[in-house]
């Protein structure tokens, strides 16, 4: 069966094929934030369809992927908001999950006087070089999966979707302090993992 878009106009099939080329990137991007293959696929599907409908608006734009990612971001925010409404009550109960483990792990980084112990933050060198390395991004993906779902959601809303803490607090019905604590846990967890798996001595990265 042919896709409706294929019959819309002669160039539509080409346009769809051009957009499809970005699918795998978009799915990985959505997976980082939604952690659910079905939801990620849905969000990407909606993005590609929306892009196809608004094709005229991006004609001539060189950064198609940036444009697509922008649309996808909105779809992900919608998903996360819907999700947070669904889990508002159960989420509050489950929020404690893994919390104590996190705190214990971070506490172990510091000595009795709350100064750095044996695992001190190292110099990560030139950020540009790292960010251009494909293998680094594989490690980044892997490390971001180590955060608890709650913490990851707040982190992605803040850092990737670019929402303010006020917006996040409102969406998830949490206090600003709660939000800052979750963001702290996310960053600490991510940096610890990257330090060990990518930047650390003996890691195969760099």
């Amino acid at each position: 069966m042919s896709h409706p878009a294929n019959t819309a106009s002669p160039g539509a099939a080409d346009a769809l094929a051009a957009l499809e080329a970005h699918r795998s990137y978009l799915v990985r991007y959505a997976m980082l934030q939604l952690r659910d293959p079905v939801k990620a696929e849905d969000a990407v599907q909606e993005t590609l369809l929306a892009a196809l409908e608004n094709q005229a608006r991006f004609a001539g734009k060189s950064q198609v992927r940036t444009w697509l990612t922008g649309i996808l971001k909105h779809k992900i925010v919608d998903q996360l908001r819907a999700q947070s409404r669904e889990t508002a009550i159960s989420g509050l109960v489950a929020e404690g999950d893994g919390e104590d483990d996190d705190v214990a792990v971070f506490d172990a980084l510091f000595n009795g006087r709350d100064h750095w112990g044996d695992d001190r933050p190292s110099d990560w060198g030139d950020p540009e070089r790292t960010l251009e390395n494909k293998r680094f991004w594989e490690t980044f993906e892997m490390c971001s999966k180590l955060m608890s779902a709650q913490v990851a959601r707040v982190f992605m809303m803040r850092e990737v979707l670019g929402l303010s803490t006020e917006e996040i607090c409102k969406d998830l019905s949490i206090t600003p302090t709660n939000c800052w604590v979750m963001l702290y846990r996310a960053r600490m967890s991510l940096r610890m993992c990257l330090e060990k798996r990518w930047f650390g001595e003996g890691s195969k990265g760099k």
């Binding site: 494909k134 850092e159 940096r191």
Partner: peptide
Amino acid sequence: RQMTFLRQACRRLAEGKAPFD
């Protein structure tokens, strides 16, 4: 600097410029 780096990395991702495929 590590925290600044994390923010930079996420921004790269948000802009669709992370070379992960």
